[in-house]
Design a protein around this nucleic acid. Sequence first.
DNA 1: TTAGTTAGTTCCATAGCCAAACAAATGCGG
DNA 2: CCGCATTTGTTTGGCTATGGAACTAACTAA
Lengths: 403, 403
Amino acid sequence: MITSHNGPQPADFTDVRATNLAVVLRFVRENAPCSRADIAASTGLNKATVSSLVADLIDRRLLRETGLTEHRVGRPATMLVLDGSPYAAIGIEVNVDYITAVAVDLKGEELLNWRRSFPGGTSGPGQAVVAMAALARRVVSRMTKEARQVLGLTVAVPGLVDVDGIVRVAPNLGWRDADLAGDLTKALRDPGFPVLVDNDANLAALAEHRFGPHRNAANLVYVTGEVGVGAGIVLDGRLRRGGQGYSGEIGHLELDPAGPVCRCGRRGCLEAVAGVGAILAHTAPDASPSDLELEIDEVVRRARNEDREVLGLLENLGRHLGRGMAAVANLLNPEVVILGGYYVPLAPWLVGCAEEEMYGRVLAPGGGGCRLEVSTLGYGAAALGAAARVLDSVDSGRLPAQR
Amino acid sequence: MITSHNGPQPADFTDVRATNLAVVLRFVRENAPCSRADIAASTGLNKATVSSLVADLIDRRLLRETGLTEHRVGRPATMLVLDGSPYAAIGIEVNVDYITAVAVDLKGEELLNWRRSFPGGTSGPGQAVVAMAALARRVVSRMTKEARQVLGLTVAVPGLVDVDGIVRVAPNLGWRDADLAGDLTKALRDPGFPVLVDNDANLAALAEHRFGPHRNAANLVYVTGEVGVGAGIVLDGRLRRGGQGYSGEIGHLELDPAGPVCRCGRRGCLEAVAGVGAILAHTAPDASPSDLELEIDEVVRRARNEDREVLGLLENLGRHLGRGMAAVANLLNPEVVILGGYYVPLAPWLVGCAEEEMYGRVLAPGGGGCRLEVSTLGYGAAALGAAARVLDSVDSGRLPAQR
DNA sequence: TTAGTTAGTTCCATAGCCAAACAAATGCGG
DNA sequence: CCGCATTTGTTTGGCTATGGAACTAACTAA
């Protein structure tokens, strides 16, 4: 059945066309190279219809014909692949001390990945907007030079972003109520493509859903392991943002009213007992936020050397994390919970005990089929997801205009 | 945009038609009585299209023309209303000691509501199936006598029900791995309508989403307050069941590792500190499950008389409940969390402190717009939701065949 | 060379939407 | 009482896009 996913909106032929174009596009992405006949056979669309759809997609340069198959009985098939070359999607991740920009083509191939250090945390998003606009302009001009059309730009922000793209609170950046999308659009002066803003965990979840090894899971939760802990929730194949866009705020899930004090003032929050800060508070109490990566490296080194203290801390963290993930698994029953951020390098010492705690607490038989996995996308997951969000709108049928 | 909600399924004209029929049907339900012109103006569909759709729906006896409007400039409009009369949807709720069956028409008007006490908890679902089949047959024959076609039957079960409708675990009933839907279909011998099974909290959430005062909220969570505590989750307008159908298992959310022992063996589960059992353990430690309602009445009486002990217990329960709901609100950011079951009579003494705790813990500004409300649908919410589930499939375009 | 097989296109019928013209039924102003 | 404006709902024609069937294309195998 076809269902408009938000409310009852009437459908007409353009919707049918858009849906079917999206079906073909997705099929080719997931099964390239493939022939028109393959598409028809697998999707159930008529051969004639597929031909028409493919012609349309080739016209828009979203697909490309490659060689023929040979050495088979029957007429050789002309194979189709995604044509990455004429388009690009841009994702930008803002953080306390740096900005990352990535550009990907339709396949998700990374075209560039630029990081720029950035003295943030000063006074509202003004400087960040200037810096992002400058970086974005350079990315756009590079893409233009490569004869690519930019389909859109999305910014990943570590904080609460509402459904309209307003950054309500970004504690680490010190922002409140910032209309980042609007400001950035203005700074780019009629960029000719949509500029969106979303939460970093949401976008990382999107990246996993699109590019990760669990991309066929319709239900997954991505958990960021930074100083703060947040989650992005994909259910039934789509990001679920909640009523106002604030879903996934898992960091202050209260695990233990007698636990250590959290920066939010309460005790025993997930963030306080299972955020990476819980370890660094012991191993490097005076580290500045910008040294985080180095400090984590140090923790990994000590864990490798079987440093008792660090191993104990990690096990403790893993157990708390597992308890938090049990709450997620019980409430949402996703196929997989993916640990990201600094949990990735620490995973060898975390996942075992976290899983143990989690499975011990999940009520559903067999843990509800929920696995605990480690992200393979690395630190750039949010930026990649930001770009993926642009591709998502293409995927759902909003194709770029014909050439 | 049209989006197939699970995976990329191709669309054709029948899908457009089904979508638009559903749009008109929903519009009339929510705006009856209304004219064809109203529908066209509000939905954006063409007048001609609306006429055709309405004719189709009248043919299928889902709509009916009532009188004309008068005393207005212009041609009087023929008003349309849902034609409840020729159809019925049946919902059945199984519980430890009784079975409830309700039948509703398309409008959700209750046609009958039968409760039958039932000595459950014996040995698997065999007896229950016999009892349900007997009850269902009586309901069906009554509906047939009223010249109604039964569109479907859904059973609400307090337990884990997987996506295929298999009851995996129903602790209070003592069932495991029961193919209730299959058994009941067999017992009814080719009933001519679909028989489905789902979790009671899920179905109650559906009832709230369709009939409750917050029916326009696209994101809501329903929490059952029985001995066990479970949740049904509606996000972006649809029930979200998770990967295997086990979402909403909130009862063993661990609120306090030092709390009282839960029947699951761990400590401080939501169910143990905020289930109604947490009160009855003090006020009526020897009560049998079947006396639950009476015992709760007694608690209400004592609370009304400002019994110190009971008021203290209720406040304590409310605070714990608020902490649990904070977790839900932070993770999902619904517009509303609806308390059901025995929380309803206890609400006057619970909601205040629960809200206080919840809002103190929700990170999003303004609590993310998440309110804590009390169900108005009463104990029959699950059965009503079971019937609503049948109506949902009509709503999403699977209309009954033409007469 | 011929038969068999698979790929993709062309042609036509059909479904169902929209726009516009039209018919129907009313109130209102002169 | 009569035209006129107003609103409703139907009819007609045009358009888009799907599906089915026939057809062309290009290859392998014997």
